[in-house]
Simulated scan of single mutants.
Amino acid sequence: MPHLTRASLAERRTQRARKELAEQLTEEITDNKRKSIARLHFNAKSQWYVGTFDADKKETRHPINDLEDIYAFADIIRATVRSLEA
């Protein structure tokens, strides 16, 4: 069994949080069609991004440093959900 360090446990928690957030940010809308309300970009360790969508479904990437930073985009994400529900 591999030795678990605090760093590896923290990394596992971060990966789990990323997955849960990605699942939460896909909202199920009518007719069982899934539509993106936001997109998380964790491709690079040095800089993460949250992508938000406008009325024309154009994505804008915003840099974030921590998962908690997505709360700054709550109003934009809520507006996207409202537009998809309409």
Score class of each variant (00 low, 15 high):
6 R>S: 12
76 I>H: 12
18 R>W: 05
48 W>E: 01
41 H>I: 07
59 E>K: 14
86 A>N: 14
65 N>C: 03
64 I>F: 01
19 K>Q: 14
28 E>Y: 02
66 D>M: 00
6 R>C: 00
30 T>R: 13
22 A>W: 02
59 E>D: 07
32 N>S: 12
23 E>W: 02
62 H>V: 04
70 I>S: 00
7 A>L: 11
60 T>D: 12
12 R>I: 03
80 T>C: 06
66 D>W: 04
52 T>K: 10
86 A>V: 07
12 R>S: 07
50 V>L: 06
54 D>C: 05
57 K>D: 15
47 Q>P: 03
83 S>G: 01
57 K>Y: 14
50 V>Y: 02
11 E>Q: 15
20 E>L: 00
52 T>H: 04
84 L>T: 05
56 D>A: 15
22 A>D: 12
84 L>V: 06
56 D>S: 15
21 L>W: 01
35 K>I: 12
63 P>Q: 00
58 K>Q: 15
13 R>Q: 14
23 E>S: 03
10 A>R: 08
75 D>I: 08
23 E>D: 09
34 R>C: 06
34 R>W: 08
21 L>N: 07
85 E>D: 04
2 P>W: 08
10 A>Y: 03
53 F>C: 09
55 A>S: 14
26 T>I: 10
29 I>E: 06
63 P>G: 07
44 A>Q: 09
11 E>G: 09
7 A>S: 12
72 A>I: 00
52 T>Y: 01
71 Y>H: 13
31 D>E: 14
19 K>P: 02
36 S>H: 11
32 N>A: 13
66 D>H: 04
78 R>W: 05
21 L>C: 03
30 T>S: 10
50 V>Q: 01
51 G>H: 11
26 T>H: 04
26 T>L: 11
17 A>S: 12
6 R>M: 10
16 R>L: 14
64 I>Y: 05
82 R>D: 06
36 S>W: 06
66 D>T: 11
11 E>C: 07
28 E>V: 03
57 K>L: 08
83 S>A: 13
72 A>W: 01
26 T>G: 03
31 D>S: 11
17 A>L: 13
60 T>P: 05
43 N>G: 15
39 R>C: 01
53 F>K: 07
74 A>M: 06
7 A>Y: 05
25 L>Y: 04
9 L>W: 04
15 Q>K: 15
79 A>F: 04
15 Q>E: 12
7 A>I: 09
17 A>M: 11
3 H>I: 07
41 H>S: 10
3 H>M: 10
4 L>I: 11
49 Y>C: 07
70 I>L: 04
56 D>L: 10
43 N>D: 12
69 D>Q: 06
33 K>S: 15
22 A>K: 06
26 T>P: 04
54 D>R: 08
71 Y>I: 05
15 Q>G: 01
74 A>E: 13
9 L>C: 10
26 T>A: 03
75 D>M: 02
41 H>L: 06
73 F>L: 11
10 A>V: 03
5 T>H: 13
40 L>Y: 02
9 L>Y: 10
55 A>V: 13
46 S>Q: 13
70 I>E: 00
7 A>W: 05
60 T>S: 15
82 R>K: 14
52 T>V: 10
49 Y>G: 06
15 Q>P: 00
17 A>W: 04
16 R>G: 02
59 E>P: 02
29 I>T: 09
15 Q>L: 14
14 T>E: 07
9 L>A: 13
28 E>M: 01
34 R>H: 12
18 R>L: 05
19 K>Y: 09
36 S>T: 14
